[in-house]
């Protein structure tokens, strides 16, 4: 006798339940579970360690200016930056290999170098493009100061003898960040790492 009302009531409740279940955000981070790809402190620690031992600076100077068509990071194919997710073997900056070792194969990362351009605006150069950050992404950043006397490094990480000042004065050579100061300071970079 109340079939119609009963069915309608049941449909309303079921629709509300489905909506509620679909809408509630449940992620490892929100539940307090430690199974997130990486902890923020861990990424921060990796960045500080790399800054202290010089790996981070060498990664920012891992620049191949001799490529005929386009200047880019050593070994970067197609783009100026790396798009692969693993850096276990090959000629990559030691910083990337260390991050790969630290966070393992189940994580993705995007690394961006921010710097000031010739007009004084902030701009960016990707070092690693891992795509759009997923759920539970954590970020850390630190500054790296480049000086006129710093040398770009070869694909083995060794100084090439070519300083940033040389690159700046040689119109045929290009480095992604310009010299923005008349002093010994060349540019101040911010390296931002996002891991998820």
């Amino acid at each position: 006798m109340f079939t119609l009302e009963g069915v309608l009531a049941a449909v309303i409740v079921i629709v509300a339940l489905v909506f509620a279940l679909q809408t509630v955000v449940v992620t490892p981070a929100t539940s307090g579970d430690s199974s997130a790809a990486a902890e923020s402190q861990e990424v921060d620690s990796a960045l500080k360690s790399a800054a202290a031992n010089g790996q981070l600076k060498r990664a920012t100077l891992f620049w191949d200016r001799d490529t005929a068509d386009i200047t880019r990071f050593h070994g970067a194919s197609e783009f100026r930056y790396y798009t692969r997710e693993r850096f276990q073997s090959g000629d990559y900056p030691a910083f990337l290999i260390a991050l790969d070792d630290r966070f393992g194969s189940t994580t993705s990362m995007t690394i961006t170098v921010h710097y000031r351009d010739g007009s004084g605006d902030m701009t960016s150069q990707l070092l690693v493009d891992g795509g759009a950050p997923g759920a539970g992404a954590v970020r850390a950043s630190t500054t790296v100061t480049l000086f006129d006397s710093d040398q770009i490094v070869d694909d083995g990480g060794k100084p090439t003898g070519t300083t940033l000042e040389d690159l700046q004065t040689n119109s045929s050579a290009r480095f992604y960040a310009p010299d923005v100061s008349g002093s010994d300071v060349y540019n101040v970079l911010e390296v931002e790492v996002i891991v998820w």
């Binding site: 309303i12 509300a16 509630v24």
Partner: peptide, 20 residues
């Protein structure tokens, strides 16, 4: 009773969505 059933379901649904 039928209207009560519907109204109850509606209130329950609104409650669930609000809780969400």
């Amino acid at each position: 009773r039928g209207q009560l059933l519907l109204a109850g379901a509606f209130v329950l649904a609104v409650g669930l969505i609000s809780l969400t």
